[in-house]
Design a protein around this nucleic acid. Structure first.
Lengths: 225, 225
DNA sequence: TAAAAAATATGATATTTGTCATGTTTTAAG
DNA sequence: CTTAAAACATGACAAATATCATATTTTTTA
C-alpha cells in the first residue's frame, strides 16, 4: 500500500496542508481502490463515511432531475477530493459519481478528516479557500446556464475540457465522453448535442473520429454566435 | 452603536460559534451602515476588505453576463453573511449586491474574521458547514436551470420566495421584485416573465396587485407542466 | 464471428422562448 | 398636479430547442 506522505497527488488538494504526522496517521487507515470505467463510486442519497482522494482517472458528478434526465454538474480529476461537502454538512450525497475511465482512488474515513479540520487550521483554511473557489465557479456555471445558448455552452464545454484535461498525441481531447454525456453537461437533448457537434464539424471548428474530438479552431469556438 | 454580543441576528449565521470575547472584540471594530432600497452595496470586481452581516432587509446578488443581462444568483436576507467567499479566496467580488429594500448591515473587517477562523475551530467548522450547504444548493440550481422550463423555474421562484420570506397581512409576498428581477432570477427575457405571470394569473395560480403577488394555488405551482 | 444492443446521425415537425413593436399603466420628478 | 420616465402588458413573428421517427454505425455480448 502506497503512503500518503509520499503521494504526489496530495500536492493538488487541501491534504498538502497536513503535517507529516497527520499524513502518516491517515496513511494508516486509508484504503485504496481500483474502479473500472463506467462503475459507480457513490450514488445520490448514499451516506458517505469519508472522502475520496483521486489518484488517477476522471469521473463525472451528476444529479437526476425531476424530468428523469441526468445533469452532469462537474468533472473530477486526479488530485481532486470527492465527498467533503456531504461529510461536512453531515448530509447524504447530493450527487452521483461515475468513473469515466479506469481510476485509482483512496478512501479516507470521516473521523480522520474531521479531526484534522478541527486541529490543523492550515488545513481547514485551505479547505475553506477551495470551497470558496468552488462556490464562485458554481455561480459562473449558473450564469452560463441561464444566459447562454446551447451552442455556446457546448462550445465552452469543449474548450473547458481542452484547457483542463489536454489532448493526446493526435490532438484529440483526453476525456472521452459520449454525446449523451455532452448533452447532460450542457443540459439539452442528446439529439441537439449531436446536431450541434455535427454543425461544428461542418464549420471546421472541430474534427471527430468516433468518440474522439479534435479541436481545430479555438477562437471560432470562443466566438460562437 | 449596538453590540454584537447582544445582537440576535448572529444566531442565524456562523458568528454564533464565536466566544463572548471574540464578539466583543469584533463589536469594537465593526461599522454599522444604513443602505437605501436600490443602492449598491458592492459591485462585481470590487475588493472587499471584510464581510457584511445583514441586520435587516433583503438584497440581491447578481452577475453581469456576456450578453449584457444581469443574472440574479441569490437573494440574501436578515441574518446572512455577505462576502465571505471573496475574503477567503482573496479574490475580488464575483457578484454585485443591490438592496431590494432598506437595509441595516454591519461591516466586519477582514483581519478580524480571518483571525477567528484560524483560532476558533468551532467557527471555522460552522463556516465550512455553511459553505458545504451553499454548494449543495448551487448544484440544485444548476440542475434546475439546465433541465426545467422557464415556466417551471418561475413557479419555483415564487414558491421559494413564499417559503423563505413569507407573506404580509394581505397574503402578498414580502419580497417585492420587478418583473425584470423575476426574469433575471429565472434567466429569461423580461417579456417572457411578464407573459408567464399573466398566464399564472389567468389560471388562478396567483393574484397580482401592482408589484404585489399573492400565491393562490401552491400545489398548482408545484405541478407546472 | 454473428447477432443484439447501444450510440450516432439526420429529417420532419411541434413547442418553447426571444425579439421587436406598440400601447397602457404605474411611478417618480419637477 | 402635471409631465416624463419607467414598468407592465400583449400581439406578431423569428429563432432556438425538443420530440418523434427512422437509418446507420459502432460496440458489446453470446
Amino acid at each position: 500500500m502506497s503512503k500518503c506522505e509520499q503521494c504526489i497527488v496530495r500536492q493538488f488538494n487541501s491534504l498538502k496542508a497536513l503535517t507529516k504526522d497527520e499524513l502518516i496517521r491517515i496513511s494508516g487507515c486509508k484504503t485504496s481502490k481500483h474502479i473500472k470505467k463506467g462503475e459507480l463510486i457513490f450514488e445520490e442519497g448514499d451516506t458517505l463515511n469519508g472522502v475520496f482522494c483521486i489518484k488517477d482517472g476522471i469521473c463525472k458528478l451528476s444529479k437526476l432531475s425531476a424530468n428523469g434526465r441526468d445533469q452532469i454538474v462537474k468533472l473530477v480529476v486526479k488530485g481532486d477530493l470527492l465527498g467533503q461537502r456531504s461529510l461536512l454538512g453531515d448530509e447524504s450525497a447530493n450527487l452521483s459519481a461515475v468513473a469515466l475511465n479506469d481510476m485509482e482512488v483512496c478512501f479516507i474515513p470521516k473521523a480522520e478528516i474531521i479531526t484534522d479540520l478541527q486541529k490543523n487550521s492550515n488545513f481547514s483554511m485551505d479547505v475553506l479557500q477551495q470551497m470558496a473557489h468552488d462556490l464562485k465557479s458554481s455561480d459562473d456555471v449558473i450564469v452560463n446556464m441561464a444566459q447562454k445558448s446551447v451552442k455556446q455552452r457546448l462550445a465552452e464545454t469543449l474548450l473547458y475540457i481542452y484547457n483542463n484535461f489536454g489532448v493526446d498525441a493526435e490532438g484529440a481531447l483526453n476525456v472521452i465522453l459520449s454525446r449523451e454525456d455532452y448533452a447532460n453537461i450542457v443540459g439539452t437533448a442528446t439529439e441537439s448535442a449531436i446536431r450541434i457537434l455535427s454543425q461544428f464539424k461542418k464549420e471546421n471548428l472541430i474534427a471527430t473520429k468516433g468518440k474522439q474530438i479534435i479541436i481545430k479552431d479555438i477562437k471560432g469556438l470562443q466566438h460562437i454566435e
